[in-house]
């Protein structure tokens, strides 16, 4: 594959990834937002494959497909307006958020032009996959195992937190938050 084609594919993925990333917060439906986020991740997965990290890129897409489906289901379970039949604009501190987002973009985007990174390109992708496998079960075994144990404890913790029969009795009967203003009534 020549450089021109690789560049064209990269810019297509990059543009797609950033536009769909923006659309996540600019759409009327949370369901659409989840699918836009998935598209953004798929674009990044494609760029990772182009960069030579084939395994990471494909695993990112694999993982995100399941995650976005769960996200869509959670949205319909708890959130208002999942279908997008009405306009949705649920934001707070919007100006601050825009400023913070733009500021962090400018700050981070200027870094690669201010810092000189060493020029040591990685070898061929196929070797990279095999090397990652050796690294996972070789020198970085402890890291890999720790990640596994962290995931296991997350699973247990998530099940305990989300359980209906909570620690202090049935979760639905749990604490109703007191209102801040006296006499304002609860917002149930």
């Amino acid at each position: 594959m020549n450089d021109l084609l690789a560049d064209a594919i990269f810019w297509a993925f990059a543009a797609g990834s950033v536009t769909t990333g923006l659309r996540v917060f600019r759409t009327d439906s949370m369901m659409r937002a989840a699918f836009y986020l998935l598209a953004s991740f798929a674009g990044v997965g494609g760029i990772l494959v182009l960069l030579g990290a084939e395994f990471l890129g494909m695993v990112l897409i694999l993982m995100m497909a399941g995650e976005m489906l769960i996200m869509a289901i959670v949205m319909v379970m708890f959130m208002m307006n999942p279908a997008g039949l009405n306009p949705m604009w649920m934001v707070h501190q919007h100006r601050v958020a825009v400023a913070a987002g733009a500021g962090s973009f400018v700050l981070l985007a200027s870094l690669p032009f201010l810092v000189k990174f060493p020029d040591r390109p990685a070898p061929q992708p196929e070797e990279a996959t095999a090397e990652l496998g050796t690294e996972l079960l070789g020198d970085s075994m402890l890291v890999f195992q720790t990640a596994g144990v962290a995931l296991l404890s997350t699973m247990i913790g998530a099940v305990v937190i989300a359980n209906r029969s909570g620690r202090f009795g049935v979760a639905e009967e749990g604490s109703q938050e007191p209102t801040v203003e006296p006499g304002a009534g609860d917002q149930r």
Binding site: F55, M58, V59, I61, L62, A65, G66, M68, P125, T129
Partner: peptide, 16 residues
């Protein structure tokens, strides 16, 4: 080199 992962990713995307 990651054919297995690509195939699995395709199967996972089917649910989407």
């Amino acid at each position: 080199a990651t054919g297995f992962v690509v195939f699995s990713a395709a199967i996972a995307m089917v649910m989407i």
